[in-house]
């Protein structure tokens, strides 16, 4: 039965440096939608994402590439990109006010397929101390292995509170 989005799992944390959503990927879906709408952070900076391997451990090897076009209401747009990183960077950006975080839609492709890299494509709207800060981003985990979950973290500082929701796309 075609059922469009199927809710899989939600995870929340308070006063954490990162949040893992475990066992959210499976053979049931090839494409996943991740919504992040509730973040409250201690430092104004970008968020990153990493993945969990088949044993549930965070993959922190230098196996991630990303590229983002940063979209600022108050300044010039900028390309941010790099390869061989320990996380996919620039998933979103928000300031330290509770009101400023956030709207983030992130799609993840083929995480559970052990013969494929895992790809991401996302868009977000956040708010810094200067104004609206949005972006459109892509990323890849360049290791063909089974990915079972994700780890959402900050480039600096902590989450005072955070919630991540994962859906399968049918």
């Amino acid at each position: 039965m075609a059922t469009n989005l199927e809710f899989i799992k939600s995870a929340s944390g308070t006063s954490v440096t990162s949040l893992s959503v475990t066992d959210c990927f499976s053979a049931d879906y090839d494409v996943y939608y991740v919504s992040i709408t509730k973040t409250d952070v201690t430092v104004q900076t970008y968020s990153y994402v990493r993945f969990l391997d088949s044993g549930g451990s965070v993959i922190s090897a230098s196996e991630y590439d990303y590229a983002e076009l940063g979209l600022l209401s108050y300044g010039s747009f900028g390309e941010n990109k790099n390869t061989g990183l320990t996380a996919i960077q620039h998933i979103d950006l928000s300031g330290t006010s509770t009101a400023q975080g956030i709207g983030n839609s992130l799609y993840i492709f083929n995480p559970y397929d052990s013969s494929s890299y895992t790809f991401t494509a996302g868009q977000y709207s956040g708010h810094s101390s200067s104004g609206m800060a949005g972006g459109k981003n892509i990323g890849v985990h360049k290791s063909a292995e089974t990915i079972t979950g994700l780890n959402y973290l900050r480039g600096s500082g902590n989450f005072d509170s955070v919630t991540v929701n994962v859906f399968g796309v049918k």
Binding site: T37, K38, T98, A99, Q100, G103, S125
Partner: peptide, 12 residues
């Protein structure tokens, strides 16, 4: 976050 009065309303 349209219905969340503690958050700004964002759009992409």
């Amino acid at each position: 976050n349209l219905g969340d009065s503690s958050k700004y309303s964002f759009k992409t």
